[in-house]
Design a protein around this nucleic acid. Structure first.
Lengths: 197, 197, 197, 197
DNA sequence: AGGTAACCGAGACGGTACGTCACGTCTTTAC
DNA sequence: GTAAAGACGTGACGTACCGTCTCGGTTACCT
């Protein structure tokens, strides 16, 4: 069960309709092909999904949550951890995967989700839990591992280093600037010399 | 004249009221102390400023534009170019100024503006023109200057380097993460070793 | 159900609120004591009735429709058919009732409704259905009955005769001229000699 | 000078522009071919006439006044008094002229003017002065003349008789009902038998 | 001849109301 | 007890006109 939505713990009564859930997420995905998260409305999702508004409100606290569920449960949006020989290579692969995930349509939607969330603390938390945290944590782990193995210098600040890896990507994402497919390489070229032992 | 609002080039007819303009920007600034850009409404600005809604719509295309005008015309939000001995020092000072500008209340508002803008291409352009461009361009110039003077390596990619400088700041800004006053130093420590000759 | 408003035929969903309907018509009646139909606004009705504007728009197509519903559903505005010995007496009574209904406050409102309606074909139809038709039809029936019983001449034009009965009343109503309580008698005196056998 | 607009009594200063006056009335007439008096706006007249709004407000108190000036100064809208042998014939001709004037496009506009005026006492007065009064007064004079000459009975109420002549026409005008070209004949047939000696 | 008073066009201004949209809640019936 | 349907109060949207105002300019008359 996703962390974005409520749980259905009760045993009594009619059980939650999985058909409805699927219809809602499908409708959301389809609508996001033609509009932005900002212009998306609970009402339009409900109508397109053939579902009552209350059903959506029962399980998700906001349209941003629905959008997150719709986007992050798509195939290709998991944060699968690679096994590599060197820390640098691991970081490179990880960055490449993130760039791929955030390029094109999906990237726009993620940018819109980040935007939509700005004044909702709980949603920010949910977003970090379901997207940022895992990716950043893994980068941090790889940096740490590189430091311990002697591949990287031992006096670098892990947190800031992760920022210089993720930051540029998010920066370009939010700026609406073009992000070429080889942008991960560029970031690696820029950051690696500064941390190599 | 700001790039955010229409101009009043015509000589005919009643001239634009400066009092109204000031009242609108003042009201916006005061309202932004208590709400977010998202929750701000043209109607509330008009009411607080004692102004007709049409007067706002006449000169600004959206509430985000008003917010930008209100924030970026504040004292302390100019991008004054420092003269320094070394490129590194120039970059450092520039980053510090940006961190200062984006820390606290104003930073939240800028984050909200970036958010509010996501589905409006024209507004994104306006934002970059009035905030990002000057700051990024200057960083690029400093990097370039450092390369030419031999202070930095001559094989670095300027654009990506600028991304590694600005990216972390924007990343933390949009993530709602804490950004300590010395965050500029941290970014410098992380990035400088990679570009020094 | 009045012809002025939409119907709520569907069985599904939350049923129409009778409390809101009553509140709207009451508020309209109270407001019409202090203003004209022209100066009446949907917004003021909504505010006074403690109701959303959309609720009004859902059931009535225009403020004139609301006004009609408010006025014509008042007690004393029904077109009750009298049983009389002679056609002339029936006509007289009918005219007297109409004059009574259109004298004073209510008359002003009806005049304003007729005015408000002038550029809305559908509303004109609705007005005739809910006010004019029944009254004119009954006058026509009485004239016809008088012709058949030999009380009136048999070569008169029913439609035009009804016009000479209703016409003067509406004429004075729309002209803002005084209409004394005995105006019905005057019209009878003027028209009857021309149609008596 | 029309009774509808202000006068230009002052001798000093730039004199009133006749070109503007004509442009305003022309524009109004052209606009009234495509809309109603209700939907007409001072702003649209000003724009179409190439004239400042203030110029209109300076000379006319309301759009209804402008419309009256535009309509009633057209050729064919004068109330020329005929000389006839009998009172009945004079009345007949007068009614026919009124029906002709109020049939078709112009009739619709007059109906709209009457409507537009309802809550403006001054405008009602102006309307009666420039349209109703002359026509009703002449009918009254003819009725009076017929009574005195023995053509009509001597116990009829002049005012109410005029009402039975004008009333039906205004009634049909305001009701949006068809008014055939021979409607004057019908009214004569209905009213004359009741007043003939 | 110059001053000045009233006109004119343009168009910005503070307002009011419009009719629409989406919100999140509520109240039905149906399953 | 969950669901679809849809009415409800609320609040903001962006637009249209209102009637007023302030500009720069343009006539005319009156010293």
């Amino acid at each position: 069960m996703s962390a974005l939505a409520q749980d259905n713990d009760s045993k009594k009564g009619r059980p939650r309709s999985d058909a409805s859930k699927r219809a809602i997420l499908d409708a959301t995905r389809r609508l996001l092909n033609h509009t932005t998260v900002q212009k998306l409305s609970i009402e339009s999702i409900a109508k397109k999904a053939g579902v009552g508004k209350t059903t959506i409100y029962r399980w998700w606290p906001s349209k941003a949550s629905v959008a997150m569920d719709a986007i992050f449960t798509q195939p290709g949006f998991q944060n699968i951890v690679p096994t590599t020989s060197s820390a640098a290579e691991g970081i490179h692969i990880q960055l490449q995967k993130i760039v791929t995930q955030l390029n094109g349509k999906n990237g726009r939607v993620v940018a819109q989700i980040i935007s939509e969330i700005q004044d909702d603390y709980e949603a920010v938390e949910a977003f970090h839990k379901s997207f940022m945290q895992a990716r950043c944590f893994q980068l941090a782990k790889l940096v740490d591992q590189g430091m311990k193995s002697g591949e990287f210098r031992d006096d670098i600040d892990i947190e800031t280093t992760v920022d210089t890896l993720m930051g540029p990507i998010i920066f370009r994402l939010m700026s609406g600037l073009v992000m070429t497919e080889n942008y991960a390489d560029k970031v690696m070229d820029a950051v690696l010399p500064g941390i190599k032992a």
